[in-house]
Design a binder for these strands. Sequence first.
DNA 1: ATTTTGGTTCTCTTTTTACAGAACTAACAA
DNA 2: TTGTTAGTTCTGTAAAAAGAGAACCAAAAT
Lengths: 153, 153
Amino acid sequence: MVLSEKQKELIERIGVFHEHKGMQPLVGRIIGLMLIHDNAEVTFDEIVDLLGVSKSAVSNALTFLQAKERVVYTTKPGDRKRYFKLKIHDWKENFTKDIVGIVEIQKFLAEVLEERKDKDSEFCAQMRDFSNFLEFFRHEIPSLFERFKKKYS
Amino acid sequence: MVLSEKQKELIERIGVFHEHKGMQPLVGRIIGLMLIHDNAEVTFDEIVDLLGVSKSAVSNALTFLQAKERVVYTTKPGDRKRYFKLKIHDWKENFTKDIVGIVEIQKFLAEVLEERKDKDSEFCAQMRDFSNFLEFFRHEIPSLFERFKKKYS
DNA sequence: ATTTTGGTTCTCTTTTTACAGAACTAACAA
DNA sequence: TTGTTAGTTCTGTAAAAAGAGAACCAAAAT
């Protein structure tokens, strides 16, 4: 496969988007490549060739993506290459992980509220509000998926 | 104010939590300090003293936090110091920003779906699912706040 | 008028990140 | 058995991030 200018540019933009989320540049670009690749899966050296980066960088990035459960590989009989692809099927899990990541602040709010002496201050009241909301939201996630399912069926 | 060991350690943990979200170390620690500080507000040189960092670092971090609308300062009559504090009151806005940040991937999914040739593949179907869900979720946010409000009143 | 305060900005240094390149390894192939 | 393929790991390095320290500045105090 050869990338069009438009595809290259889209990969870059997907790359920087993921950089902003704290991923290292190449990781974001690999995600982009996997999204736009015609076969929806790429081999190790396709990544090397198409993105023009070193094998070591690709190896590390793929290890990372597999550890984060964002990518898996399959193999084909009589072919030693690995075919890496996004676990897009698991979008619910990934989305949930992202949400959990932001809701996690609640844990610290609770600790802070525990530690503070001015429990009945406006400041603490607002923290409690936020904390309660996060708690509420966390429990709402499953029902969110359900309501979505109901709507689209 | 002088920080207890427990408070120091909590600030550190809140700091690394925010680092993981892509903020620079000191920024996260300042958030931590503002959360645990008895007065819920800190002056410039309290930050310098309590966290043991340079004025320049504090100045930059505070500029950043104000630009991101996470912090404001107030002043007191006959006192030139600025009293910086978290805009914890705006937790809804901040939370929404975080959510929008993760939902933003939808924009790229749409572009990718536009660009791909295999529209009726399993891969595209899953992307559409996810994309539709994100769209759905985005519209659900206000109702989420409402349902929370209803529950706690 | 000059000193102090509260903070900003500039330059330099340290540390960390992100990656290249080469050496290496395990499985298979000739 | 030697070579090739597919990837990993190790070592070095360029670039970027994070912050220190000093110079600087404006407003207020003396």
